[in-house]
Simulated assay, not measured.
Amino acid sequence: MTGLRQRQKIDRDRRIVEAAARLFREFGFEGVKIETIAEQAGVSVGTIYNYYESKGDVLIAVVSLEVNEVISAGESVLARPPARAADAVDALFDIYLRHSLYYLSKEMWRAAMSMSILHPDSPLGRHYGHLDEKLCQQVCRLLAKLRQEGSIDATVDTEITGRILFNTMNMSFMTFVKDDGMDVETVIGAVRRQSATMVVLGNG
């Protein structure tokens, strides 16, 4: 019985997040009310507030759905990375960037980033930071595997290098999100050029 209740809870949560994602994309984050999300998800407003404190928390849940799917897809690169380090990093970042607008629009990303910056110590802000950290750690783990396989020099600090690479990519992603005219191929090209400047990636 406990298992059934847990599955029902997970199903309701998924319906809330998916309904919110659709509505936020169509009407913008500010243009959607909790009542509308509840109606679309087939739950009561009270149920949503049992899961989330605010509409902002619902948006961060959509970001979490996006990031967790991206991380899951990125594990395929870690399982069998290309022999050349630069190609492996490009493959991982391509997944991050190409999947970034699957659930979220640029407007949704801007809203989420804004809330996380304005309220960094709130549960919402900490959750957003935690998601960024999960992505960063995946980059660091990829470099550690490449070092183990001899694709990069054994003396390279994969933690520091991974964080530099991730932060550089993330800055390009923020530029992409702010510019409605920039397409994903443009930002991918920019990120590849930036990553290629890291000397460590030329060793493999």
Results as ranks from 00 to 15, higher is better:
residue 1 M to G: 14
residue 2 T to K: 11
residue 3 G to Q: 12
residue 4 L to R: 11
residue 7 R to Y: 11
residue 8 Q to F: 05
residue 9 K to R: 01
residue 9 K to C: 07
residue 10 I to M: 11
residue 12 R to Q: 09
residue 13 D to Y: 07
residue 14 R to P: 14
residue 14 R to L: 12
residue 19 A to M: 01
residue 21 A to R: 15
residue 25 R to K: 14
residue 27 F to C: 04
residue 28 G to C: 08
residue 28 G to N: 05
residue 29 F to S: 08
residue 32 V to G: 03
residue 33 K to F: 10
residue 34 I to C: 08
residue 34 I to A: 12
residue 36 T to K: 09
residue 37 I to S: 11
residue 37 I to P: 03
residue 37 I to Q: 11
residue 38 A to L: 10
residue 40 Q to H: 09
residue 40 Q to A: 11
residue 41 A to I: 04
residue 41 A to F: 05
residue 41 A to W: 07
residue 42 G to Y: 00
residue 45 V to S: 04
residue 45 V to R: 15
residue 46 G to R: 04
residue 47 T to I: 00
residue 47 T to R: 10
residue 48 I to G: 06
residue 50 N to D: 05
residue 50 N to G: 14
residue 51 Y to T: 04
residue 52 Y to S: 01
residue 56 G to C: 02
residue 56 G to L: 03
residue 57 D to P: 00
residue 58 V to H: 03
residue 58 V to M: 04
residue 59 L to Y: 12
residue 60 I to K: 09
residue 61 A to W: 10
residue 61 A to L: 13
residue 63 V to S: 14
residue 65 L to C: 14
residue 65 L to M: 15
residue 67 V to I: 14
residue 67 V to G: 07
residue 68 N to V: 04
residue 68 N to W: 06
residue 70 V to K: 13
residue 70 V to Y: 04
residue 71 I to N: 07
residue 71 I to T: 10
residue 72 S to H: 07
residue 73 A to F: 12
residue 73 A to G: 07
residue 74 G to Y: 10
residue 74 G to A: 08
residue 75 E to S: 03
residue 75 E to N: 05
residue 81 P to S: 07
residue 83 A to N: 11
residue 84 R to V: 06
residue 84 R to N: 09
residue 87 D to I: 03
residue 88 A to V: 09
residue 89 V to T: 08
residue 89 V to N: 02
residue 90 D to W: 10
residue 92 L to H: 01
residue 97 L to S: 13
residue 99 H to N: 11
residue 100 S to C: 13
residue 100 S to A: 15
residue 100 S to M: 15
residue 100 S to F: 07
residue 100 S to L: 12
residue 101 L to S: 12
residue 102 Y to P: 00
residue 103 Y to A: 11
residue 103 Y to S: 14
residue 103 Y to H: 15
residue 104 L to G: 12
residue 104 L to Y: 07
residue 109 W to E: 01
residue 109 W to P: 00
residue 114 S to N: 03
residue 126 R to C: 12
residue 128 Y to K: 13
residue 130 H to P: 00
residue 131 L to S: 14
residue 131 L to A: 15
residue 131 L to W: 11
residue 133 E to R: 14
residue 134 K to S: 15
residue 135 L to V: 12
residue 139 V to D: 01
residue 141 R to Q: 13
residue 141 R to E: 02
residue 142 L to V: 01
residue 143 L to P: 02
residue 144 A to Q: 06
residue 145 K to C: 02
residue 146 L to C: 05
residue 146 L to P: 08
residue 147 R to T: 03
residue 149 E to L: 12
residue 150 G to W: 13
residue 150 G to K: 09
residue 151 S to P: 12
residue 151 S to L: 04
residue 152 I to N: 02
residue 152 I to Q: 03
residue 154 A to D: 11
residue 157 D to V: 08
residue 157 D to Y: 01
residue 158 T to K: 02
residue 158 T to A: 10
residue 160 I to M: 02
residue 161 T to V: 06
residue 164 I to T: 02
residue 166 F to T: 10
residue 169 M to P: 00
residue 174 M to V: 04
residue 175 T to N: 11
residue 176 F to K: 06
residue 176 F to A: 05
residue 178 K to Q: 09
residue 181 G to N: 06
residue 182 M to I: 08
residue 182 M to R: 14
residue 183 D to E: 14
residue 184 V to S: 06
residue 185 E to W: 05
residue 187 V to C: 03
residue 189 G to T: 07
residue 191 V to K: 01
residue 193 R to F: 05
residue 196 A to R: 15
residue 199 V to H: 12
residue 201 L to R: 09
residue 201 L to D: 07
residue 203 N to L: 04
